[in-house]
Amino acid sequence: MKCRVCRAPAVLDIRRHNAAFCREHFLTHCREQVRRAIDDQHMVAAGERVLVAVSGGKDSLALWDILVDLGYDADGLYLGLGIGEYSDASGQAARGFARRRELALREVDLAADYGYDVPGAAAATHRPPCGACGLSKRHVFNAVAVEAGYDVVATGHNLDDEAAVLLGNVLRWETGYLGRQHPVLPATPGFARKVKPLYRLGERETAAYCVLAGIDYQVDECPMAEGNRHLGYKEVLNALEDRSPGTKAAFVFRFVDHAHDRFADEAGTEREGLRACDECGSPTTGDVCAFCRLRERVGSRAVHAQ
C-alpha cells in the first residue's frame, strides 16, 4: 500500500477513510482529526488552560502529545487507582512521558489521598470495579480542575469508546445518558467543561500514533476490566466495522450531529436539581455525592474488617 498523500510505502491503512498513510502523514492525519474535533465542537478557546486526564495508556498519552503539539497549554493529571502492578506500570508510563516532553504532571493517589483503592471499592460495593473506577476518576479530575483553575478537562475517550457507550445506551434506551453523551459537556457551577478531542480517532489509530511517535504506553489491559460489558460491545462493533468500514464513525458522528439534541432536555432536567454535597461541596442531586458515599462505604467495610 502507498501513502495517500505522498505515495511512499504506507505503515497503516484506515479502511473507513479508504486510505493508507506513511508515518509522517499518519501523524499529521491524527493531529488534523483532533484539531478538527476541537474547532468543530468549540472545545477549547485560545488561552484556556487544559487538564488532561492521563492514565499512562495509548489514548491519554496520544491526546496529551497532540494537544501540546497543537499549541495548547495542557498539564496532565494521573490518578493512582491501586490496581497492583498494572497501576505501577501505568504510573511509570505517565511519568516517563511527562519527563521526556518536559510537561507538568499532577498526581493524586486514591489510597493515599482518599483512603481506598479500586479493588477495595469493588469488594465493598459488590459491584464491577469499572463503576467505582469511573466514579473516582470523574470526581477527582473535576475537583482538581475546579480547585486549580483549569478551564477544561480533556479525556482520552476515542471513537471506539464513544461507539461502545452509545451502543450500550441505545440498547437500554438510557435517555438521560444519551443526553449527556457528547464530545463537549459545558461547564456548569461546580463542574469544569469536559471535552473528548479524540472522538474522531479510533483506538487502532491512537495506538498506532503512540508506536509511530515513539511514545511508551501501558500496553497491557487493565486486569479488572476483563470481561466487562463495554469490551463485548467493542467486539460486536469491530465485527460490524470489518464487514462494513465506517460503521462506527457513522454511528457516533450522526448521533452527535442529528440525534443528541433530542435527548438533551433529559440531561438538563437532571442538572437543574443539583446542590452542594454536604461532605465535599461537589454538585450532587442528593445530600451526599456518589463519590463521598463510595468512600464512606469502603471505609465502614474496612472498620468492620478490623
Binding site: 505503515v11 489514548d59 471506539d160 469508546d161 495506538a207 489491559e221 476490566a225
Partner: peptide, 26 residues
C-alpha cells in the same frame, strides 16, 4: 514500525500482534 495488510511476511520474520482494545469504559 507498523505493517499494512498487504505486506508479505517471510519465514524468518518476527512480528508482534498488539491488541488495541481498551476496556474499563464508564
Amino acid at each position: 514500525t507498523l505493517v499494512t495488510r498487504d505486506v508479505r511476511l517471510s519465514d524468518t520474520d518476527i512480528v508482534e500482534i498488539r491488541p488495541v482494545t481498551s476496556g474499563g469504559a464508564e
